[in-house]
């Protein structure tokens, strides 16, 4: 069993941003591959088989969303997109096309690394054990086999749809799930106009599982986009930005 460094592919046309990203990633011991255009990026992705792709949505040669679609045809590598502010529709489109997360420019290195760690960890966990029988966050335990949820040792009663939504969140922990995606998970197709169902159910889930439902720590709102489940072992991205804790150990995946 050898340890190989994490490999990240950077598809970004702006040289300065590429430089900043490369510097940050390399200081964490990550191997970086660069591409300046969408076509080049797709070719690099096929050649290098990276563990994660960082993709700028405003590329000169092709639409970033199109890059994701083509990439997703043959790869399930985590994709984090970089987008401008107030472009919620673009973010949703990218996420629905298969992106895992987004970062809004401008962002700092701490924010960037917090997000990357989230997805690299998720990938590692998913590849190690495909069926996790138990899932824990805070004082909540979810038994995925028995379909039972307890909070501080006491059984929590969830309706079937609530349980479906919770499972969808847990399965993709760390990933941003769009409203449309979660609606499909809970109610099936044909409910695209009923996003208020989802909001009410997420409210119920928070009431049942969060210690302070109005300031949730696990079921986090991504305003204008969807929801993200943040388990306690994976630090919440917002709180890491200014955390003064010691730098986390370098990320490694075993092959």
């Amino acid at each position: 069993m050898t340890v190989r460094p994490v490999r990240v592919l950077l598809i970004e046309d702006d040289g300065k941003i590429r430089r900043f990203l490369r510097m940050t990633l390399e200081s964490e011991g990550i191997t970086v591959f660069e591409a300046e255009s969408g076509r080049e990026g797709l070719a690099e992705a096929a050649r290098q088989q990276p563990d994660l792709v960082i993709l700028d949505l405003g590329l000169p040669d092709m639409d970033g969303v199109e890059v994701i679609r083509q990439l997703r045809a043959w790869s399930d590598v985590p994709v984090v997109v970089l987008s401008a502010r107030s472009a919620e529709t673009q973010k949703v489109l990218a996420l629905d096309s298969g992106a895992d997360d987004y970062l809004t420019k401008p962002f700092g290195n701490l924010e960037l690394m917090a997000r990357l760690r989230l997805h690299l960890r998720r990938r590692a966990v998913a590849s190690e054990k495909d069926a996790v029988p138990f899932f824990e966050f805070g004082s909540v335990k979810v038994d995925l086999v028995q379909r039972q949820v307890t909070r501080a040792g006491e059984a929590v009663h969830l309706t079937p749809i609530e349980y479906k939504l919770l499972c969808a969140l847990i399965r993709k922990a760390g990933k941003v799930l769009t409203h449309a995606h979660l609606l499909r998970e809970g109610w099936g197709d044909g409910h695209a106009g009923n996003s208020h169902y989802l909001r009410i159910y997420m409210g119920h889930l928070r009431q049942k599982l969060e210690s302070d439902p109005t300031r949730p720590t696990f079921i986090v709102t991504e305003t204008g986009v969807g929801y993200r489940f943040v388990a306690n072992e994976l630090a919440s991205p917002s709180s890491t930005v200014h955390a003064k804790s010691a730098p986390p150990p370098p990320i490694e995946t075993s092959t």
Binding site: H196, R199, G203, T214, R215, S238, S239
Partner: peptide
């Protein structure tokens, strides 16, 4: 305006999360 029917608690929560700094 991209108006959608939603709970007011939700936006208060996300505003608090964003303004945490």
């Amino acid at each position: 305006l991209n108006r959608e029917w939603q709970l007011i608690e939700e936006v208060i929560g996300s505003a608090l999360a964003i303004s945490h700094r």
